[in-house]
Design a protein around this nucleic acid. Structure first.
Length: 275
DNA sequence: CACTATGTTGGTTG
DNA sequence: TCAACCAACATAGT
């Protein structure tokens, strides 16, 4: 489900619901999400604690507890959180339940079971292997275009695939990679080594712009992404993603779709020429 | 029914 | 080190 805008939307949603609530119990019906901990250890640390802050690094959600531990959650394709004020029917693929007082609860649901959960000391957060290797995301004020350019300039793989590499730039996934490249009129099949500094700057500027607008729209719901039970609205503004065989809004050319490293690239062959 | 697709990423292979 | 491929899994669409 999530790229940066969707993850940020989930964080905004949860922050309005669960901060400072005492966690009284956890029920886990599927252990496979727990990566560097077992169920007993997670329960030991989390029960009786409170989540005091929720933020993210790249697409990883960070639940900071009041006891110097942080839960690190990645939603991968289908992970979802929802908060319930009052008990309701469980849904298929509800796998982890955090119980607060008054029967309110936070539920983690993940139909494809790809999601991951790590637990680490907050002070050692940046030593976690998964976070350590992540690049900054383009909305981070410390994001450095020169650094980005250095990482792509010798690469013999496509700019589309490079934008998906979280060690080069974090937060971008398939939808926004396609949309950003359309926005800057760069063909997705151009190799990293063919991109000059000016173009890489344009790409980053566009990434900032598009990710911000997408956050304002609560993300993009194409298949199943939702926060709580609400959906995003950025799908109404997509220019190429999921528009195969439809006319380009800019020039009426037919939008193409082809796989690049197993992921669908969508582009307008007229607007996005090969250099 | 068989086959392909899907907002991800890690491990393996050459 | 780099790039290609496949795996994890459920579900919807052709």
């Amino acid at each position: 489900m999530p790229e940066l805008p969707e993850v940020q939307t989930v964080i905004n949603y949860l922050s309005s619901k669960i901060l400072k609530k005492e966690i009284e119990d956890i029920k886990i019906s599927n252990n496979k999400f727990l990566k560097n901990i077992n169920e007993d250890f997670l329960k030991n640390i989390v029960i009786n604690s409170r989540i005091i802050k929720i933020d993210r690094k790249g697409k990883y959600i960070l639940f900071h507890l009041d006891n110097d531990y942080t839960i690190v959650s990645h939603l991968r394709m289908e992970g979802k959180y929802r908060f319930e004020e009052k008990e309701q029917e469980f849904k298929k693929h509800d796998y982890i339940i955090f119980y607060f007082k008054n029967n309110s609860r936070l539920i983690y649901n993940d139909s494809r079971q790809f999601g991951t959960i790590h637990l680490t000391k907050t002070s050692e957060l940046n030593n976690l292997k998964e976070l350590k290797k992540l690049a900054l995301d383009p909305l981070d004020e410390k994001f450095n275009i020169e650094h980005f350019f250095q990482k792509i300039k010798n690469k013999n793989i496509t700019i589309k695939t490079l934008l998906l590499d979280q060690t080069i730039i974090s937060g971008i996934g398939n939808i926004y990679a396609n949309e950003i490249l359309f926005d800057v009129k760069v063909n997705p099949w151009i190799k990293g080594k063919e991109i000059d500094f000016e173009t890489s700057k344009k790409i980053i500027d566009s990434a900032k712009k598009i990710l911000k607008i997408a956050i304002k729209n609560n993300g993009t719901t194409i298949h199943s992404y939702e926060f709580g039970s609400s959906k995003g609205s950025f799908q109404n503004f997509l220019k190429v993603q999921s528009r195969e065989k439809l006319k380009c809004f800019q020039c009426n050319e037919i939008i193409k779709r082809e796989k690049d490293h197993g992921r669908s690239s969508f582009w307008c062959p007229n607007c996005q020429k090969i250099i």
